[in-house]
Simulated assay, not measured.
Amino acid sequence: MSVEKPKYLQVYDAIKYQIRSQAYRVGELLPAEAELCEQFNSSRPTIAKALNLLSQEGVVHRKAGFGTQVLPPQVEALKIGLLIPQLAQTEIFEPICASITECAHEAGLHVIRPPELGRSADFRKMAESLAAQFISMKVNGVFFTPIEYIPNHEEFNLAILERLSQAGISVVLLDRDIYPWPRQTPYDLIGIDNIEAGFVVAGHMISNGCRRIAFVSEPNPAMTIQLRQIGVREALIQNGFSTRDLRTVNFESEHPEAVVETLRREQVTGVVCANDVTAARLLRIMVDGGVRIPEEMQVCGFDDVKYASLLAVPLTSYQQPCLDIGKIAVNTMIARIQHPEGPTHRTTLKGRLVMRDSAPARRS
C-alpha cells in the first residue's frame, strides 16, 4: 500500500521540476505565494514550507520584499572564504566585505568569515591560519588581500597564493596586487584605479587655486598609495606644473607637529593625504596648531570612510564604490571557478570625489 507524499513535498517536487525543465529560468522570480497557493490548491504555510526546502538546497533564494529567485545550479554549493587579515585595521574593507557577502548570498554562494578576522596584530600568523582553515574546509574560492607592512611581504603573500592554488582553490585579489606596479601576478584583481583617484583629487585642488601641493603619507607607503601619488604628479604635469612642484612629506607618528611645520615652511596650500586615516590625524594637528582650513590649506583624503564627514573639519575624500567592488568581485569569482583556465581579469573601478569643508567645491 503506497503512502501519498505530504502536500508540501508534492509542491516542492513540482516547482523543482519546473525549474529544472526551465519553465522558470535562472534569475527569474517564481510567482508570488498567493499565485502558487491558487496554482497548487494549497495553503500559504504549505507553499512556504516547500519554498523554504528549495531555498535550503540552494535551488532558489528567498528575500523579504523581493520574492523567490531561481539560482544557477552551478553555484548552489560553492563556498568562498575571506582572507583579509588587515580587515579590522583598514576600515574600507568592511563595506566591501559586506557587499561581497550580500551579493554572494543572492547568487547562492556561502561566504565564510572565520572568527580569526579580529584585531590581532600578527597578520602573518592570522593569514597562515586562515589559509589552512580554508584548505581543510575545501572551499571553492578565496578573496585575498595581500598583507602590507611586514618583512618580506612579497615572498610571504606569494607563498599563501601558492598554498591555495595547490589545493585547487580559485583566488581573486582585492584592492592590490602582490608585486609593485607595473608587475602583475596572474590572478584576477578588483579595486579602484588609484592613479585616476590621485589625478582627480589633485585636479580638484588645482582648480581651487592651490599652487603648492604636498602629498603626505607614512614612511614606506603601500603600492596603492604610491599609485595615488603618481596620479597627483600627472595632474600637476597636465596643468602646466613640474613634478618638482610636488612636496612629499612623511607623517611621523612620534612627531606629527613637525609635519605641519614643514607644510607651513614650504607654503603649501593643498595637502593630499594618502588615505582618510592620515588625513584625520593631520587635520587634528592642524586645527590644534591654528591652521585655517580651507583658507590657509586645503586637505583631501581617500576612501571616504564613515567618520570623514564627522571630523572637526569635514573631510573632502575620494569615495571608493564599495557596493560595486563587492558585486564585481563575486561575479569574477564565479567566472574563475567555472573557468579556471580562463584569461586573467583586472577590473579597476572609478570612484567619485565627495567635497566637504576641508576642500570645498570650486570657488568663483
Rank of each mutant, 00 (worst) to 15 (best):
K7G: 01
D13T: 05
K16F: 12
I19W: 04
Q22P: 07
Y24M: 12
E28H: 04
E33A: 13
T46P: 02
L54V: 10
E57Q: 13
V59K: 05
H61T: 14
G67K: 13
Q69T: 15
I80F: 04
I80L: 10
G81E: 08
Q89R: 10
P95E: 04
H110L: 15
V111T: 11
R113K: 09
P114V: 13
E116I: 15
F123D: 01
I135A: 03
I135F: 04
I135R: 07
G141Q: 11
G141M: 02
R163Q: 15
L173P: 05
R176K: 08
P186H: 07
D188P: 00
L189P: 01
I190H: 02
I192A: 08
E196M: 10
A202L: 00
N208E: 14
C210P: 00
R212C: 07
I213F: 08
A222G: 03
L227S: 12
R233S: 15
L236R: 02
Q238S: 05
S242E: 11
F251Y: 13
V259A: 06
Q267V: 15
V277Q: 03
L283D: 07
L283S: 06
G290Y: 08
G290F: 09
F302Y: 04
D304E: 05
Y307T: 02
A312E: 07
L315E: 06
K327M: 14
A329C: 12
V330H: 07
N331I: 02
Q338D: 11
P340I: 09
P343G: 01
P343M: 14
R352N: 07
R352P: 02
L353I: 10
V354C: 07
D357E: 12
A359F: 13
A359T: 10
R362F: 09
